[in-house]
Simulated assay, not measured.
Amino acid sequence: MPRVSVNQDKDQSLVRLGAAVRARRKQMNYSQETLADAAEIDRSHMGKIERGERNVTFLNIARIARALECKPSDLLVDAGL
């Protein structure tokens, strides 16, 4: 099966997920660096996730959700996915 790239994200799922992460992060008054540290993800990678530039893995979604004190499904619902 061919790998799906960010360029093939025609319905903007990654951008919408990134926006949901950013909105929750700001709601909690976390800096991007604080969230990245709590989720054990490199800060520059977190920035790319928030901008929809990375095809984020489920494990990273779970880490981000844990750091944001929510369920992974909450992030997906917030993104309209």
Rank of each mutant, 00 (worst) to 15 (best):
I41S: 08
V15P: 00
A23P: 00
D37A: 14
D42E: 12
A19E: 11
T34E: 14
K10W: 07
H45L: 12
A20Q: 09
I41D: 04
G18T: 05
E40Q: 11
S5W: 02
V6T: 11
L35C: 11
S13F: 13
S44K: 12
D9H: 04
A19S: 12
S31F: 03
E33T: 15
L14R: 10
Q12N: 15
Q27V: 09
M28L: 15
D11V: 05
D42G: 07
Q12M: 13
H45Y: 15
M46S: 06
D11H: 06
E33P: 03
R16W: 03
V21K: 01
R24D: 05
Q32G: 15
D11Y: 09
A20V: 09
K26P: 00
S5P: 00
V6P: 00
D9G: 02
M28K: 15
V4G: 03
V21D: 02
D37H: 11
Y30P: 01
R16L: 13
T34H: 10
H45S: 14
E40I: 01
R22M: 09
E33R: 14
S13D: 12
D11S: 11
D9M: 04
V21I: 14
D37W: 01
A19F: 02
V6H: 05
E33G: 12
A39C: 07
R25K: 06
S31W: 07
K10C: 08
N7W: 01
S13A: 15
V6C: 01
R25A: 08
Q12S: 14
R3M: 14
A19Q: 13
S13V: 09
E40S: 12
A20H: 07
A38T: 06
D42I: 00
V21A: 02
R16K: 15
Y30D: 03
V15Q: 10
D37N: 12
R16N: 10
A36D: 05
Q32C: 12
D37K: 11
R43M: 02
M28Y: 08
Q32M: 14
A23I: 03
A38V: 01
